[in-house]
Amino acid sequence: MTLRFTEVCIDAADIQVLGQWWAGVLGWPAETTDDGDVILRAAVGPDWLFLAVHDDKVVKNRIHFDFTPDDQQAEVDRLVALGARHVDIGQGDESWVVLADPEGNEFCVLAAEN
């Protein structure tokens, strides 16, 4: 028996808004599923499926995404302009930048690879 990693499920208060926000960040197409969820179709790797929840996010994520850009500062500036915000989760002075999406889900923008 084998397993194939097909989806990352992301809980969201407003799946349309958050799904469209991440679609703009990643440049992936978003569509609404037959169940009314929002899915981003990844060219490579698992799709992102946004699921509606009614409870608020109250603690730091137990899992998060890391992104490696060509230019860290330019990408951080772009993401903040799109609505991300800087967050301090106790990371200290590191080479990565911790941001949160509009619903508070943390993610990291790593230093560019040389």
Results as ranks from 00 to 15, higher is better:
Met1Gln: 03
Thr2Phe: 13
Arg4Phe: 05
Arg4Ser: 11
Arg4Asn: 11
Phe5Asp: 01
Thr6Ser: 10
Ile10Pro: 02
Ala12Lys: 02
Ala12Trp: 03
Ala13Met: 10
Ile15Trp: 02
Gln16Thr: 14
Gln16Arg: 13
Val17Ile: 07
Gly19Leu: 10
Gln20Leu: 12
Gln20Tyr: 07
Trp22Pro: 02
Trp22Gln: 07
Ala23Gly: 12
Val25Gln: 04
Val25Leu: 11
Leu26Phe: 15
Gly27Arg: 12
Ala30Arg: 10
Asp34Arg: 11
Gly36Pro: 09
Gly36Phe: 13
Asp37Pro: 00
Ile39Phe: 00
Ile39Trp: 01
Ile39Pro: 00
Ala43Val: 10
Ala43Phe: 02
Trp48Asn: 01
Leu49His: 07
Phe50Leu: 03
Leu51Arg: 13
Asp55Phe: 07
Val58His: 12
Asn61Gly: 06
Ile63Arg: 06
Phe65Ile: 15
Asp66Pro: 01
Asp66Glu: 14
Phe67Ile: 15
Thr68Gln: 08
Asp71His: 14
Asp71Gln: 13
Gln72Tyr: 12
Ala74His: 05
Glu75Ala: 03
Val76Asp: 11
Val80Leu: 15
Val80Ile: 15
Ala81His: 09
Ala84Ser: 15
Arg85Ile: 09
Asp88Glu: 06
Gln91Ile: 08
Asp93His: 14
Glu94Phe: 00
Ser95Trp: 08
Leu99Glu: 04
Leu99Asp: 06
Pro102Asp: 03
Gly104Leu: 04
Asn105Glu: 02
Glu106Leu: 01
Glu106Asn: 09
Glu106Lys: 00
Phe107Thr: 04
Val109Glu: 05
Ala112Gly: 14
